[in-house]
Design a protein around this nucleic acid. Structure first.
Lengths: 180, 180, 180, 180
DNA sequence: CTCTAATCGAGACGGTACGTCGCGTCTTACG
DNA sequence: CGTAAGACGCGACGTACCGTCTCGATTAGAG
């Protein structure tokens, strides 16, 4: 069982340096001090390991993100989300910036749907649930990835504001009063 | 020069059936009646061909999408965009649904920035241009892809409405008057 | 390690049928039931395999040929050499007759120089060692190849006589008394 | 017709630098300022050009070499041969030293047999004609190639002596009186 | 001097063989 | 049983060089 953990953290440390798709299995094995045969006893392939690692890490994120839409103070919820990201900056930079982001997006969307459908009924506001989810996830990830790329030059409150304004509010609002 | 066109349309017809990432170069070559050597005389790899094909096709899309944000009647502009998509349903289903969507997103964003930055000054509304672009592109693509997957069960006006409400309006609005 | 032997004997059986230079790597692989990758794990290219096979087989030949020049009864030594060749007729037909003969010549000459220089001092007889070696090897090979092509119509004693007369004696003799 | 000459001399100048087998057709074409199509209008392939060039050049050599065996003063004949070689050192270095030597040997043997069989009847001396030819050609070429590699440190008379002693005499002599 | 046929240059193309790369399987031995 | 070490098969990729073909330009000889 030690090997599994070695692979888990090995992948995370490698993914922080290179794009996931560029990581060779051999690199991972050498880096994790795990033999080829052992790897395949635990995972059917590289993607499965990523899936496992991603799911583990994203579950935390989903726990924080779910209340976003049901909360009364959406801005505060957004801030909470970004605080969590900030606390694991290296990890999420790797997961959102590199070639793994597509897979992460899928995992996130899947977990979101599995856990959240009852709590928030976006369809009430005229938007189909699956569209709302994929659009929201995509938007959220883009904003997070953008913020992580800014190298701390953007205050966390501002980033949270963007998320609130570009993703959360539009999902909740049914009609606009444009004032410009 | 004939080969290049054969490859272009060959890729499009293949991509309509399988995910881009699953297309083997040999399949493409057989399908396009072009030899291996000739392919590499034109493109350094499969991705470069996709890039070329994508750029060609996306340029039309960008021409239609650019006025979106500067128009007074955003809803009509959204409708125009979806009408174009509808007119080339097969093509865009292939490009947005399969494994090529990531690349398309990047191309779209690049062309969008190259051509449109002066027309729309999103930063006036408090959102950095690059964030606005990548968020807007991602959102637009998600909605389009979702609509294409619905097999015509969703009226085009409704889809355009989603785009207007989830992407265009939030980008333009600086402050909300939430009415719920 | 099994593959290496399979390749070794596979090459020998193929070289008996076609010219070495005409053997396609794929033929060899199919014939030896060895995969492409495995071949390259053992040898850098086709020539390296031939080199290895040739060296292995030629070592025996050199062991027999070396005493040729130091023996008192050169005719008997020549006979011994041809008897060995006769005992492995198929092998040497392949190695000496086909496109591999050039490589064999080089290997033979190299091994000959590596092992024999001290035993025979041809330079005493006025012929530089390297010239003597390459001339002797070339001559010996031509006679052997010729004999192998004659399909047993030439008695082995006669062939040995040619070798003695055309190669061994001239190398030993310093001056002639021509009697004709 | 100008192209043919350009190819002829182009090959000779290239063969002086690299092994024949390493010369790419494209190199030859660029070097000779002749187009691909033109080359194939004159020769079926690279080898045919070499054959043509080789035959042209070797004919001179054969004219000199033929009298070797019928002459009374073999030593003088050998000297004549080496003088000719010396007069075209660059050319013959290229033809005998590089990868073309095998082909040259074959051409030489063929021309030798075509022109010489009536003049010299080696079989009288107990050696089959074809064996005598191939053995003699191989030996002669080895000595020439060796001499050309010595960079003029070996006097021409000495080299001619080797040829006389190792090739011409053994071919003529039917019995030896070994004096050592 | 002109017309026409031979010669040529430029370069796209097909095709075959080669060598590389990375993944996934399997065997063997060790604890 | 979990693991290490490593040989192996396999499929796909990208490269290298050859030989073919088309088209347009040039040239040379015959009228």
């Amino acid at each position: 069982m030690k090997s599994k953990q070695a692979l888990h953290s090995g992948l995370l440390s490698l993914i922080a340096e290179q794009d996931f798709s560029e990581i060779l299995l051999d690199d991972l094995l050498r880096h994790s001090h795990v033999s080829r045969a052992t790897f395949y006893r635990h995972y059917p392939d590289k993607e499965a390991l990523l899936e496992h690692v991603g799911t583990t890490e994203i579950e935390n994120l989903v726990d924080i993100a779910l209340p976003l839409l049901s909360s009364t103070d959406t801005r505060a919820s957004c801030l909470a989300l970004f605080r969590y990201i900030e606390g694991h900056r290296a990890l999420w930079s790797a997961l959102l910036t590199g070639g793994a982001s597509g897979a992460m997006r899928d995992i996130y969307a899947r977990l979101f749907e599995e856990r959240g459908p009852k709590q928030v009924d976006m369809s009430k506001r005229g938007i189909p649930l699956d569209l709302g989810t994929s659009w929201g996830v995509a938007g959220t990830f883009e904003i997070m990835a953008w913020w992580l790329k800014q190298d701390k030059s953007v205050p966390i409150e501002v980033a949270a504001g963007y998320l609130d304004r570009l993703v959360v509010r539009p999902a909740l609002v049914s009609e606009y009063d444009v004032n410009d």
